[in-house]
Amino acid sequence: MSLPVRLAQPQDITQLIAIERSAAQLFLQQPAWRFLADGPVMSRQQHADFIQHQREWLAESASGEAAGFIAILPQQQDWHIAELSVAANWQRRGIGRRLIAEVAAQAKLQGAERLTLTTFIDVPWNAPYYQRLGFRQITAERLSLPLRQRLAEEAAQGFVAGSRCAMEFTLS
């Protein structure tokens, strides 16, 4: 299913928060990461900042139901995917793939060289999913400073060393 994707608007923020909370429920299936199901999500202010800078997109149904969103941060020649979430009732329908495709097209138009993200290595809908979409894990020696900092921040937040990785998708 390919839903239309548009830039998110301030009036979407409540739905965006609900999407991320819904998506996080998948972590109940992962004993080591169950705490994430009830963990923090992006704040209203974070969403407002992404929206103000036109860096957040929303997939929605013809009836206006928000299905998923993607938020990005430009970093040097990269667009970093800060968050990609698909509501539980919309998962496994290609929404995440559609959101990434939209962002990849926009990034390429604006001269970005690659998409990057950080994610869990062993969670099936994280690194293995992104690999199926064409992302590749970035080796430690090739990590940019912003990605090194992001992974260090994640470790400081309590993520076990070696559980996360950075990945890239080249836009050529």
Rank of each mutant, 00 (worst) to 15 (best):
S61N: 06
G96E: 07
A107G: 12
Q157S: 15
Q91G: 01
Q131F: 08
H53E: 10
W57E: 02
I17H: 06
A156P: 03
I17L: 07
S63Y: 01
A48G: 06
A105E: 13
A152R: 13
A101M: 05
Y129K: 13
L16G: 01
R132G: 12
A37K: 02
T119A: 04
R55K: 14
T170N: 07
Q52E: 09
I72G: 07
S172V: 04
A67Q: 07
D12R: 14
A59S: 15
M167D: 08
Q77L: 10
Q77H: 13
Q15N: 15
L147D: 11
I100Y: 03
E20P: 01
V5W: 05
K108C: 05
A62I: 06
E141K: 14
A166Q: 09
L151E: 06
V103T: 10
G68T: 10
G96R: 05
L99W: 00
A37E: 13
L99F: 04
R93F: 08
S2K: 13
A152H: 12
D49E: 14
L99Q: 07
I51W: 02
Q131D: 08
A161H: 09
T170A: 12
G111V: 03
A152C: 03
Q149C: 01
G162P: 05
A161T: 15
Q15C: 09
Q77K: 12
S85G: 05
G64I: 03
R148A: 08
G111L: 03
H53C: 00
Q15T: 08
G111C: 06
A105I: 04
R97C: 09
H80L: 13
P124S: 09
G162C: 02
S61G: 11
R21F: 04
P146W: 07
E60T: 11
R34K: 15
L143P: 05
P74C: 13
I51R: 08
N126G: 01
P4Q: 06
K108A: 10
A88L: 11
M1T: 12
I19A: 02
E168P: 00
A87T: 01
A48M: 10
I95R: 03
L7R: 04
I95W: 06
Q54R: 15
L145P: 02
R114M: 04
I121R: 15
F159K: 04
M42H: 13
R21W: 02
F159I: 11
R55F: 02
R148L: 12
Q54C: 02
Q106D: 13
S43M: 09
F169H: 13
E56I: 02
K108D: 00
L58V: 11
I17V: 15
